[in-house]
């Protein structure tokens, strides 16, 4: 902001800051702080996919802190490409299945696993392995949502450019939205993680390319904010994303957080991309989301708990 401060504004501002400080000191914000002491902001578990997924969610308070009895749950994995799990363009089916089972055990009344796929829908559901894996829980759980009649137009208040879009109806009905992205690179947005994955729940994505992709993406996330993010870092598509094929690095890591931005930010810093290390703020949409207060990209200030099983 280039606006010059006059004295009156300056005093107002000081007073506000003073009040804020006083409130902090007196413990007004304490509940949050104390919670942070027991449950970390980000849980990171290294180990076998199924066990690591369970452990990561448990680290940040367990599935029951999010999914209550009778809740409708929407899982958003990556299954947009006709590629096998080993190629890391799609989310590891074991991770998706584990989360679905956890939600069911927590008492979810309805669990849907949806993605608007780029390649032909049925082929994606099958070849990604997510369809076959989750069929064991429920035959009608996994769907490629490629038909306009599955979507409904919504207005995004506070959006900077993407003021309206067509969102899958299930996202509007669901009580809980869980992002289950695979950790992968993306030629246009650097990485494709939980935030970028939300493009799989809307109908027209081409408009986002024609506008500013990063800006519209943050607009979208301000509407489709996941209650829980579990990033599948069992295999990381380090180059050649989003479609692949590219360099796949086996990291056996699951990252869980209730803050999408934090989870994405951590994933950026935790893995190597194109043979290099990057700071979360080097990914524009993560930086913008932080600036807009959708979550925190300053992971150095967050509590992170890492365990190996």
């Amino acid at each position: 902001m280039n606006r010059k401060l006059n004295r009156r504004d300056f005093i107002k501002l000081q007073a506000k800051n003073g009040l804020f400080l006083a409130a902090s000191a007196s413990g007004l914000f304490l509940p949050q702080l104390s919670l942070a002491l027991s449950t970390p902001d980000i849980g990171v578990v290294k180990g076998e996919a199924v066990a690591a997924t369970k452990a990561a969610v448990d680290l940040i308070g367990g599935i029951k802190s999010i999914v209550k009895k009778g809740h409708r749950v929407l899982l958003k994995p990556n299954m947009s490409f006709t590629r096998s799990p080993e190629e890391a363009s799609n989310t590891n089916p074991d991770v998706v299945k584990t989360i679905a089972i956890m939600c069911k055990e927590a008492g979810a009344s309805n669990i849907m696993i949806l993605d608007h796929t780029l390649a032909p829908g049925n082929a994606c559901v099958q070849i990604s392995g997510i369809g076959p894996a989750c069929r064991e829980i429920d035959n009608n759980m996994v769907h490629a949502i490629n038909n306009p009649s599955f979507f409904k137009q919504v207005n995004i208040s506070n959006a900077k450019s993407l003021t309206k879009t067509d969102v899958v109806k299930e996202a509007l009905k669901a009580d809980v939205l869980i992002a289950v992205p695979v950790a992968k690179s993306h030629s246009a947005t650097g990485v494709s993680l939980s935030m970028k994955g939300m493009m799989g729940l809307i109908y027209d994505r081409t408009i986002m390319h024609r506008m500013d992709l990063n800006e519209t993406l943050v607009d979208l996330v301000s509407f489709l904010k996941a209650d829980l993010t579990i990033i599948d870092g069992t295999r990381v598509l380090s180059t050649g994303g989003p479609g692949g094929p590219g360099k796949v690095i086996k990291k056996d890591t699951i990252i869980a957080s209730k803050d999408m931005v934090a989870a994405d930010a951590y994933a950026v810093s935790a893995f190597e991309w194109y043979g290099k290390k990057f700071k979360p703020t080097q990914v524009k949409h993560i930086r913008l989301a932080h600036e807009r207060g959708l979550g925190r990209a300053d992971i150095e200030n967050l509590s992170i708990k890492t365990i190996t099983i």
């Binding site: 690179s185 993306h186 650097g190 180059t239 991309w273 290099k276 524009k284 930086r287």
Partner: peptide, 26 residues
């Protein structure tokens, strides 16, 4: 496309290498 065969802009084109990697900011 096969892994490793893909024209990786980073490896093949020094001009992009200076720019870190596709999609990342400096």
């Amino acid at each position: 496309k096969k892994p490793g065969q893909k024209t990786n802009p980073l490896e093949s084109y020094p001009a992009i290498q200076q720019d870190s990697a596709p999609g990342f900011d400096k």
